[in-house]
Nucleic acid binder design. Sequence first.
DNA 1: GCCAACGTTGGC
DNA 2: GCCAACGTTGGC
Length: 201
Amino acid sequence: MAVKKAAVTKAAVTKAAKKPAAKKPPQSMPYDQGKWAHVFAPRAPGETRYWLIKSEPDVFSFQDLQAAPQQTTQWDSVRNTGARNFLRDGMKTGDLAFYYHSNAEPSGIVGICEVVREGYPDSTALDPSHDYYDPASVAATPTWFMVDVRAVEPLSRAVTLPELKASDELREMALLKVSRLSVVPVTAAEWQVVLRMSRSR
DNA sequence: GCCAACGTTGGC
DNA sequence: GCCAACGTTGGC
């Protein structure tokens, strides 16, 4: 059963872009040589890494995850290559992830979940009847991947986007630096800062 | 391979 | 609803 969680298609009509492009875009490079190389680097024995996954609560909230069988779901329907690389090659079983509610009131980090199955082909991309079917992705060489995540616990208090932005210690947080990636890495230091914020007040 | 058009995310 | 950011597509 495939639940759409990321890359939610809006019914709204998108206006055509109209500004002349002036800049030249940075050359894209292999993900393991770019600024995210460290999240794909070999790990120390037993090392846990941290992530943040976004979902619109109207589509699939943290409460929905808690209510799911085994409090687990497939993190499917991601159709962005950067996020795909994190799902396919970065996240390992036992890693922890913040659960972020986007397009919410307020947007923010609301819970913690755990990776319980490492990247495997996203079945929604292979199913012609699915809204997120991608004919370019075939079973033998799948383009899109997903992981399974299980709810661990809600934060005792949600940490909102304005709070995250206001923190000097989170100035370099990927969530705040790179827009529109539905899966982003979180450093161990940032993880602790957010937890501390969630426990305050 | 370049780059303009187009599509999507998500904050505001 | 608007639009900045940025990824993808496709004509050439």
